[in-house]
């Protein structure tokens, strides 16, 4: 369980998050949605202790994220932040292997190698294992980064816009894989998504932010309504139902 209480965050006087109170239950896929600048990435970074918490508390299974040793947290929570600089001259297998660092601190054992092999297979990266990361396309690199976070083998997996630069087939494959990881292995996955329909199709819960405030939090079916989406995005988005799937018609 991730419990967020009274969290506010400001950068140079500009409020990014205001009074967020939220509980993300263990297990399942939770999607974080909202318009640009809503504070989704900031919230994710605060949970993952990538940004310093200035007010409020965030706990992970009861552990305060800002006061728990970062190494102990790395065994419980893995995070894929939005792409920063890309490490050059690293092979895909090496990059994914870094996910095991919290477990072996530099001396990989047999079970670490097995975990890397499993992650490469799961994210369809076996053919790319020996390629240098800086020779990959954006989408391939994105998959390698998700595989690295998965490889960390933690109960909680936080992903910031993992579908960035993935084509439609790989985007769907990745969401299905996340779904499977959550269902079969009991992992808790929190994912920032831009595409409402991926959230609708694969997430159990949707948390919606707007201008730094929490506007919706509930089971996917309850959030995926025209009325709620109106409150989140400030515009009318028709929602249709096709073959039992809620679909936001945001492109018409």
């Amino acid at each position: 369980m991730i419990r967020i209480s009274n969290v506010s965050y400001a950068i140079a006087g500009t409020t990014i998050l205001e009074d967020i109170d939220l509980a993300i239950p263990s297990g399942g896929v939770t999607a974080l949605i909202g318009p640009n600048g809503a504070g989704k990435s900031t919230l994710l970074s605060l949970i993952a202790r990538l940004l310093p918490l200035s007010s409020g508390t965030i706990t992970l299974d009861g552990l305060p994220v800002d006061r728990t040793p970062t190494r102990a947290l790395a065994l419980r929570l893995a995070v894929m932040a939005q792409e920063g600089s890309v490490a050059s001259r690293l092979r895909v297998e090496e990059l994914v292997g870094f996910g095991r660092f919290p477990h072996h601190r530099g001396r990989p054992r047999a079970q670490d190698q097995a975990a890397v092999a499993e992650a490469l297979a799961l994210f369809d990266l076996e053919a790319l294992a020996d390629r240098f990361v800086d020779t990959l396309s954006g989408g391939q690199r994105q998959r390698a980064r998700v595989a690295m976070a998965y490889c960390q083998g933690t109960d909680y997996l936080l992903l910031d816009e993992p579908l960035n630069s993935l084509d439609i087939i790989y985007a769907r494959a990745l969401m299905r894989t996340l779904r499977r990881i959550a269902d079969d292995r009991g992992r808790t996955i929190v994912v920032v998504l831009h595409d409402l329909n991926h959230a609708a199709a694969h997430a159990d819960r949707i948390v919606a932010l707007r201008e730094g405030r929490l506007v919706a939090d509930g089971p996917t079916g309850e959030v995926m309504t025209t009325a709620t989406l109106q409150r989140v995005f400030g515009d009318t988005i028709p929602v249709a139902e096709v073959d039992g799937h809620r679909i936001a018609l945001h492109f018409v």
Partner: peptide
């Protein structure tokens, strides 16, 4: 080994427990 991880950047290194 910690330097190897730090070469990935601050966020990745923190995520990996450095």
């Amino acid at each position: 080994h910690v330097l190897d991880v730090m070469a990935l950047g601050r966020e990745a290194a923190v995520g990996l427990g450095v």
